[in-house]
Amino acid sequence: MKVVLYSKDECCLCANAKVILRELQKEFSFQVEEVDIYKDDALLEKYQIMIPVVEIDGKEVQCGIIQKDVIRKRLIKFSGVE
């Protein structure tokens, strides 16, 4: 399962999202790819006011204030584990 976190430097919401994803890695097997939107003009235009954005297997699942329960439910759905 591939999880991408779109973020930027010095973003408290992004830092919180990273903590949540690290905690969920204790329950689920996945790697997190962190992408700084300021290093790609297309991503900056797309996600500028939405970050952080969590994407699982190519599908955006949550943005802004990331909630652990929402991400957990999506990880369960994408992993096929109940």
Score class of each variant (00 low, 15 high):
78 F>Y: 14
33 E>Q: 12
58 G>D: 05
55 E>I: 12
42 A>I: 13
8 K>E: 00
25 Q>D: 08
12 C>Y: 15
45 E>F: 04
29 S>V: 14
9 D>V: 12
40 D>R: 07
5 L>V: 09
73 K>L: 14
43 L>P: 13
72 R>V: 07
68 K>V: 07
54 V>L: 07
8 K>Y: 01
14 C>F: 00
13 L>P: 07
19 V>L: 11
41 D>T: 15
65 I>H: 13
40 D>W: 05
71 I>K: 09
43 L>E: 06
9 D>A: 05
30 F>C: 02
33 E>A: 06
16 N>S: 13
58 G>V: 12
57 D>M: 09
73 K>V: 03
64 G>S: 02
24 L>C: 01
73 K>G: 14
3 V>M: 05
29 S>T: 14
13 L>Y: 10
72 R>P: 01
71 I>H: 07
30 F>N: 00
38 Y>M: 04
36 D>Q: 02
20 I>V: 06
8 K>F: 02
39 K>Y: 03
20 I>E: 00
67 Q>L: 15
64 G>L: 00
62 Q>N: 07
75 L>Y: 08
46 K>R: 10
37 I>T: 06
34 E>Y: 14
20 I>S: 01
17 A>W: 02
21 L>A: 06
44 L>P: 03
35 V>P: 09
33 E>D: 09
34 E>R: 14
71 I>T: 13
66 I>S: 08
24 L>M: 04
30 F>D: 00
32 V>R: 06
17 A>Q: 02
72 R>D: 04
69 D>C: 07
21 L>Q: 01
64 G>C: 01
24 L>G: 00
40 D>N: 15
65 I>S: 14
68 K>D: 04
7 S>G: 04
49 I>M: 05
67 Q>E: 15
51 I>V: 12
58 G>M: 06
23 E>P: 01
69 D>W: 04
57 D>L: 08
32 V>K: 04
5 L>N: 00
37 I>D: 02
22 R>E: 11
17 A>T: 10
20 I>G: 01
49 I>V: 15
66 I>W: 02
2 K>S: 11
11 C>H: 02
38 Y>E: 08
82 E>Y: 05
17 A>G: 03
49 I>A: 06
22 R>S: 12
12 C>D: 15
10 E>F: 05
23 E>W: 03
31 Q>R: 12
30 F>H: 00
16 N>T: 13
47 Y>H: 02
27 E>F: 12
37 I>M: 01
4 V>Q: 13
9 D>W: 02
70 V>D: 12
48 Q>S: 09
24 L>Q: 03
40 D>Q: 07
18 K>A: 10
36 D>G: 03
4 V>I: 15
64 G>H: 05
63 C>W: 15
52 P>G: 00
82 E>R: 07
3 V>E: 01
62 Q>K: 04
27 E>H: 03
43 L>V: 11
41 D>G: 10
63 C>A: 11
72 R>S: 05
